[in-house]
Design a protein around this nucleic acid. Structure first.
Lengths: 205, 205
DNA sequence: ACGCTTGTTCGGATTCAATTCGGAAAAATT
DNA sequence: AATTTTTCCGAATTGAATCCGAACAAGCGT
């Protein structure tokens, strides 16, 4: 941001711009949204965009940050409930919430996710990954028998990245080859079967 | 394409433009590459770009298509060898080839993959997905015992999408939390364990 | 209330990249 | 070698992103 808004009215302008960014992006996609559109939707002059943002790109960056922060805010309160459930239920539960979250508000966050995953994955989605890693850790602590599983960091990495991408891609696909429930069930089975098999192997040693 | 090149020399300029597109993209990323840069690298005038491409975007589209086609061309000949291996080895083998392929030529295809996955997944990567599905099908036919596994389409979808994304993301990450070998081993185990567990469950019924 | 400083808004002017266009050069065809 | 087709080009156009300075509002001390 080029300058910090100090007055209340300026903060409102910044909010209006970011909100307008979400609306414009959901309507036409990021490539097709112009500064003028954002300004018009926000009800401000084009010049105002540049008071608080270096350029159009930075508006998208802030949107991505808000998206990630909101996602984390959505997940955090679920953690205590989820960690007490059996693994497959836990995965299904998390995925259902994630889908609803992405589709809310005319899919604004789904569009955003698509964009955020393209450029600078690490920078934007890293905090989200950290939160999910935290969820995994807490889950393991509530189910001590699973602590024997090997390669937990690797498996978290795969399931978190692969899971997020599969879901986002599936929801973006106008004609997906499988239903969302099949996808969710598949991901749950993937995690569940891996856990079961790994524990069977470990108990043999 | 606005117009088809009929003479040999015209085909050469089209090639030079696409090649220049890869070079420019690898150097500065897609957002920062201008038509003038592409034209300069290709050694042609800016106007020439528009003889054979509607716009800059279409150059990237053709690049994506070539990338996907080359990827498929890389995988096809591996299929006969891979389908005869045990599942974990097969996955590891495929992943090693995929990594080498993405990193060849100054990582040109890795950059391309990042871009191609952002916009229009379905349109571009769909043929690749089809090829990999084909690989899965052939694998299953060479290992009849695995045919009892349920939800094969779903599992293919998850492993193909999740696998591709995990690998691309990992290779793009300058400071990945795990090594590539760990990632590859993890993916192999994920597939392997799932298969083993599923077959154990199925034989009980 | 009043002048002063600081913060905010705005939209025309500017910049820069994408795209167009008309004609020249090269190749093919007659 | 004349003619037609194909190819190439770069100056001119277009339009979106960005800048900038004037005008407007808010806070603040007097």
């Amino acid at each position: 941001m080029a300058r910090k808004p100090v007055q209340q009215r300026a903060k409102a302008t910044v909010d209006a711009i970011v909100e307008a960014g979400f609306i414009a992006m959901a309507e036409r996609g990021p490539a097709a949204t112009t500064t003028r559109q954002i300004a018009d939707i926000a009800g401000v002059g084009v010049g105002s965009l540049y008071e608080y943002f270096e350029n159009k790109e930075e508006i998208f960056q802030v949107m991505s940050e808000r998206f990630v922060a909101d996602t984390i805010g959505m997940i955090q309160p679920l953690i205590p409930t989820i960690v007490r459930k059996p693994i497959k239920e836990a995965v299904l539960d998390l995925l259902a919430h994630f889908r609803d979250f992405l589709q809310a508000n005319n899919e604004r966050y789904l569009k955003c996710a698509r964009y955020a995953m393209a450029l600078d994955f690490e920078q934007h989605v890293e905090p989200l990954q950290k939160t999910l890693s935290e969820l995994v850790t807490q889950y393991l602590m509530h189910h001590p028998e699973t602590l024997k599983i090997r390669n937990i960091p690797t498996m978290s990495y795969i399931m978190i990245n692969g899971g997020i991408y599969s879901v986002v891609r599936h929801l973006c696909d106008p004609a997906p080859p499988i239903t969302f429930d099949e996808l969710a069930g598949g991901l749950a089975d993937m995690v569940g079967h891996y856990t079961e098999r790994e524990m069977a192997l470990v108990s043999d040693r």
